Amino acid sequence: MIRTRLLKSGIALWAAMCAVPSVHAQAAYPNRPVTLVVQSVPGAITDQMARLYGERMARVLGQPVLIENMGGAGGLLAFRRVARAEPDGYTLLVTVNTVLAQPHLSAKAGYAMKDFSAVGEMGRSSSLLVTSANSPYKSLADLIEAARKSPGTVSYGSSGIGTTNHLNVEMLASRARVKFLHVPYKGVAAAVPDVAGGRLDFVMPTASSTTELLNAGMLLALAISSAERSPRYPDVPTLAELGYPDSGFEIWCGVLGPARLPPDVIKRLEAAMEAARGDKDLVQVLAGAGQHISPVRTAGQFEAVLKDEDVKLQDLIKRANITID
C-alpha cells in the first residue's frame, strides 16, 4: 500500500514538473525572433508595411521581427509557407485581399482560409477608377453605357487574374451587368501610362498609383471604392453614390498566422500592432503612401472582415467564371 502511494506521488510530481516548462514557455512568448513572411518582393507596399510595423512591434515584443520576402506565384509561396507553419506565433503572414481569392480561383492553391488565424489589419487604401483626361468617358455612367452598347470592347488593365485591381473591376461589372475587356499586365504600374496615353480605356488601381498623372492632368478619376469620399479626392464620387453600392472593396494589408494560433499569442500580437498604430511617424508614412488605419483594430474585427469578403469574392469568382487553372 505504502509502495503504491509513493509510486503515485512520484508520478504526480513528475507530471507537475513536466508541465511547468510548458506554462513558462507560453507565458514567455516571444522568446526568440518573430518572422513576417511577406507575399511580395522588397519595396512593394506589403513589404513597406511589414517593415514599418515590424520595427515598432519589436519594441513591444522584446524580440527582433524579421522580414522574409516570398514574392512570386501570385503570393502562393508565402501563403502555403505560413499555412503549414507551426501555430506558435513565430511565423506570420503579411498579405492583402488576394489571399482570399486564390483558393476560389484554383483547385491547386494548396491552402484554404481555414488554415489561417486572423491577427490584425495594418492599413487600407481605396481604389480609383481612372481614365484618360482625353477619353470620351467623362463619368462612370458614360463608361457603363458604352459597355452596354458594345459588350467586351471597353478595355481595362490589371496586374493579373485574381489581383485586387482585377477583381474590383469584375465586381463593378457584375453589379452593372456589363462585360469589359480585361487586359492583364505584368504590373498595374505599366497599365496606368497606357490609360493616360489612350491605349487602354481605364484602370482601377490603388489611389497612390495614379496620383502623379492625376496631378499632371493626364488622368480623370470617375469613381472611388471607399464607403465615403476621400479627403484627398473630395470631388470624386463613391461607387455607392453613383448607384453601385457594394461594387468594390478597399485594399487592406494585414497579418495572419497559422490556424489554431493560441489566444494569448494573438493578444500579445494585437497589443504590439496597436502600439505601432499609435506611432505618429508610421501614420504619416502610411498617409504618404495613400494608406490609412481603419477602425478594424482587433483580431476579431479583422476576422469578420475576412469572412465577409471571402463570401463576396467566392460568389463573384463563381458567377463570373474566373479561373487560373
Rank of each mutant, 00 (worst) to 15 (best):
Leu220Lys: 10
Ser135Asp: 06
Arg199Trp: 12
Met57Tyr: 12
Asn134Ser: 12
Ser139Glu: 06
Val130Arg: 01
Gly62Thr: 06
Ala112Tyr: 08
Gly75Cys: 01
Val154Trp: 02
Ala147Glu: 01
Ala109Thr: 05
Leu76Ala: 15
Val94Trp: 01
Ile161Phe: 08
Val37Pro: 00
Pro103Asp: 00
Phe202Ile: 03
Trp14Ser: 15
Gly187Arg: 05
Thr4Ala: 15
Gln291Thr: 09
Ala190Gln: 13
Gly89Trp: 00
Arg177Thr: 10
Thr238Cys: 09
Cys18Asn: 12
Thr35His: 02
Val65Gln: 09
Ser22Pro: 14
Ala189Ile: 13
Lys307Glu: 06
Lys318Arg: 15
Gly187Asn: 13
Val236Ser: 07
Thr238Glu: 11
Val34Thr: 06
Gly197Arg: 15
Asp281Cys: 06
Ser208Gly: 10
Ser127Cys: 14
Trp252Asn: 11
Lys108Asn: 14
Ala19Pro: 14
Ala287Tyr: 13
Phe180Leu: 11
Pro30Asp: 09
Val96Gln: 15
Gly160Ile: 02
Ala25Met: 11
Lys307Arg: 13
Tyr156Asp: 01
Ile266Cys: 03
Pro87Phe: 00
Gln301Asn: 08
Gly290Lys: 04
Glu55Lys: 15
Pro64Tyr: 11
Ala133His: 03
Asp201Tyr: 08
His24Gly: 10
Ala207Gln: 12
Ser139Arg: 03
Tyr90Arg: 06
Glu274Ser: 14
His292Gly: 12
Leu105Ile: 06
Ser22Gln: 15
Val311Ser: 10
Val265Gly: 04
Leu167Met: 08
Phe79Asp: 00
Val119Tyr: 02
Arg260Lys: 13
Gly10Val: 06
Ala12His: 10
Thr163Leu: 12
Val37His: 04
Val192Phe: 09
Phe202Ala: 04
His166Val: 02
Ser106Asp: 14
Ala276Trp: 05
Gly120His: 06
Ile224Ser: 10
Gly110His: 02
Ser9Gly: 11
Ala271Met: 12
Ala287Lys: 10
Leu214Met: 02
Gly75Ala: 02
Ile2Arg: 15
Ile224Glu: 14
Gln284Pro: 02
Leu92Ser: 01
Ala173Glu: 03
Gln284Cys: 08
Val296Tyr: 00
Ala176Leu: 05
Val285Ser: 08
Phe249Lys: 05
Tyr185Cys: 09
Asn168Cys: 06
Glu145Arg: 13
Gln284Tyr: 13
Gly197Thr: 15
Arg84Cys: 00
Lys138Arg: 15
Leu222Cys: 03
Met49His: 11
Gln39Lys: 14
Tyr185Thr: 04
Pro33Val: 09
Ala141Phe: 08
Arg268Val: 07
Gly288Ala: 07
Ala73Gly: 07
Arg81Thr: 00
Leu269Pro: 05
Asp235Ser: 10
Arg56Ala: 02
Gly198Ser: 07
Gly290Thr: 06
Ile266Ser: 00
Ala118His: 07
Val38Thr: 04
Lys312Pro: 04
Glu212Leu: 06
Ala118Ser: 07
Ile2Thr: 13
Arg3Met: 13
Thr206Lys: 11
Leu239Arg: 03
Ala85Lys: 01
Glu309Met: 14
Gly72His: 03
Arg148Gln: 10
Ala109His: 05
Ser126Val: 14
Val183Pro: 01
Asn69Phe: 07
